[in-house]
Write a protein that binds this DNA or RNA. Structure first.
Length: 162
DNA sequence: AACATGATTCGCT
DNA sequence: GCGAATCATGTTG
């Protein structure tokens, strides 16, 4: 799938990051980069992050939305009654469309099995930036990035926190 | 061992 | 637009 919306988390220096205080849950983020950090949110949803920083820094990128371009039939099965453009709209929905769960925690995204990172796009699309969604701390940092005008980007903003 | 809360979503108004 | 659902993790006693 083509990623269209992400949110950056600055690891140990970012109050909004799960890695701000070191816990067993976020332990994976302190490890090698290009591995998957999956966590459960609000009991029922999963969110998928890509660890990006060097060891001990715990930087990560939350994948918030994407356009399903491969295995779309499978994605439709997992998200019955949803339009194609919204199959992976929102972090929880995206994880469901891709079939991600805690079983994928720690997957090497450069490795051969399971979910992995594809090649970068040939032409870089226009990117917009804005405040992060759903975080109560440091929401003023404009670290949400999305492809401008893309229909698969989550349209709704959460209650604005100044 | 108990309590509070959340990197959300869906449904009803 | 607003509020409930729902439970593992983190925090406090």
């Amino acid at each position: 799938m083509r990623i269209t919306e992400v949110e950056a988390y600055g690891g140990v220096h970012d109050p909004a990051s799960h890695a701000f205080t070191r816990t067993p849950r976020s332990e994976i983020m302190y490890g090698r980069a290009w591995r998957l950090y999956v966590y459960r949110s609000y009991g029922m949803h999963f969110c998928a992050n890509i660890v990006t920083g060097p060891t001990e820094e715990a930087s990560a990128v939350l994948v918030r939305a994407g356009e399903v371009v491969d295995g779309i039939d499978l994605a439709r099965e997992r998200r019955i009654g949803v339009k194609d453009a919204q199959l992976a709209r929102g972090p929880g929905n995206l994880a469901r469309a891709l079939g991600l769960s805690l079983a994928d925690l720690g997957t090497d995204l450069l490795g051969p099995d399971g979910v992995r990172l594809g090649d970068p796009p040939v032409t870089i699309p226009e990117i917009s930036a804005g405040p992060r969604v759903g975080v109560s701390k440091a929401a003023d940092v404009p670290w949400r990035f999305w492809v401008r005008g893309d229909p698969t980007v989550s349209a709704y903003r959460r209650s604005p926190r100044a």
